[in-house]
Computed example of a mutant assay.
Amino acid sequence: GAALQLGLYLLNREVLRLPFPASTVLWYMLPITLGVAVGARLDEFPAWWRRRRWVLLPVLTLAFSLYLPEALAYARGERVTPIVYSGLSWVYTSLTALALLGLAFRVQRSASTVRLTVALLGTVSLQVYLIHPALLQALERWDAPDGTPWQVALTMLGYFLLALGIPALLGRALLHTRLSTWLFGR
Rank of each mutant, 00 (worst) to 15 (best):
D43G: 07
F64P: 02
G7A: 12
L121N: 09
I131H: 04
V128Q: 05
A99I: 03
A73N: 12
R52Q: 05
M29C: 14
R51N: 05
E44S: 04
P58T: 13
L4E: 07
E70K: 00
Q127C: 10
A144L: 12
R50V: 02
D146F: 12
A47H: 04
A40K: 08
S110N: 05
A111G: 10
P69T: 00
G102H: 04
Q108Y: 14
F64L: 15
T61H: 10
E44L: 05
L88K: 00
V38E: 01
E14T: 10
A22K: 15
T33S: 14
R141C: 09
Y74Q: 13
T93E: 09
V84H: 07
Q108R: 15
G102V: 02
P46Q: 01
P19G: 03
L18R: 14
Y129V: 07
F105K: 01
P133R: 07
L121G: 14
W142H: 11
R53G: 04
G102E: 06
A47S: 10
A119S: 03
R41P: 02
L136C: 06
A40I: 03
R76C: 00
Y129W: 10
A3H: 11
G147R: 05
A111C: 00
R141Y: 10
S110T: 15
L135I: 11
L139Q: 14
H132K: 08
V128D: 03
E14F: 10
L101Q: 07
L30K: 04
Y9C: 03
L4M: 11
T96A: 06
D143K: 14
E70T: 08
L103D: 09
F64S: 13
T117W: 13
I32H: 00
Q5M: 09
A73W: 04
M29D: 10
G122K: 05
A97H: 01
M29G: 12
W142T: 13
G102F: 02
S110C: 03
A37D: 08
S89L: 12
T123A: 00
T96M: 06
P145E: 07
P133W: 09
A99E: 09
V91P: 05
V107K: 02
Q127F: 07
R141D: 10
R76E: 08
W90V: 15
R109Q: 15
L100I: 13
L42Y: 02
L62R: 01
W48T: 00
A75N: 12
S23E: 15
R52D: 01
A3R: 09
L103F: 12
H132F: 11
R50M: 03
V114P: 03
D146G: 10
N12W: 06
L116E: 14
L68W: 14
L16G: 04
G87F: 10
R41W: 00
L26E: 03
Q137R: 11
L126G: 09
S110D: 12
L120M: 12
W142R: 11
A144D: 08
P145D: 04
S89H: 14
L60N: 06
P145Q: 03
S112A: 05
A3Y: 11
N12F: 06
L10M: 09
A138H: 05
L16I: 13
L66V: 07
A134R: 12
G35Y: 02
T113V: 14
T61A: 15
A134D: 10
V15C: 02
A63Q: 06
T24K: 02
L18W: 15
L4C: 13
E140N: 14
A22C: 13
L139F: 14
G77A: 00
V15K: 06
L103Q: 09
L136H: 08
A75G: 12
